[in-house]
Amino acid sequence: MLAKRIIPCLDVREGRVVKGVQFEDLIDAGDPVEAASRYDQEGADELTFLDITASHENRDTILDVVRRTAEAVFIPLTVGGGIRTNEDIRRLLNAGADKVGINTAAVFRPEFVQEASSRFGSQCIVVAIDAKCVEKDAHGQPIRWQIFTHGGRKLTGLDAVDWAQRMETYGAGEILLTSMDRDGTKIGYDLALTRAIAQATTIPVIASGGVGTLQHMLEGLQQGGADAVLAASIFHFRQHTIPECKQFLQNRGIEVRL
């Protein structure tokens, strides 16, 4: 059976790993290539770099990080952040990335996803969706979400479920779904959001935003229906190792690669 994937995510800013709370208050968490190699050796299923470098001039730094990672790491690597053109994608793939995450540029010009997937193949186009709850039911359960861009600062008015379906028809191979309400809070994924998107689409969904415990990862896979779970601080700050995480999931009946 296809194993559920465990994906450590590294936020990279000007060549260093950083970690923040709800996209702010960044602290240094080390060298990305070192961290990537460690996760690879521990048995991570894939790796994701999110380039949050502020200035456009320093964009080439990520290419160097990707190049050095590809020398040492032989599992799939996804790179997202600031990707606007097919040329950006080509350069990342040539440097050694296997997939790219497209977020803001897709919102501004959805046809970009179409162009990118027809040129490079759906398998390497991950559409990253940052969603925030805009409506709850009488019991306080979230029922509607909208898309945000610019690292969560700009509301677009787009419904998250509609948007995910549209991105699938435009050729996205996978959805990286981040709950803006949960990101950095350590209170667990937004399971209602994850489930809504997983059921509305037929491409894999990666749950992201809010992991604080291994139980949260189990919930994202079981109740959220995610195909993969992404986490950052739980791994960076050595709260849990990848093998601990996988053993926990396997003991609870989840197929993982151990």
């Binding site: 059976m1 296809l2 996978e174 997983a198 894999p204 229906g225």
Partner: peptide, 12 residues
């Protein structure tokens, strides 16, 4: 409750 996700993506 869900149908098969395609592409088949991941470790098998």
């Amino acid at each position: 409750a869900m149908t098969l996700k395609v592409p088949h993506m991941g470790w098998n």
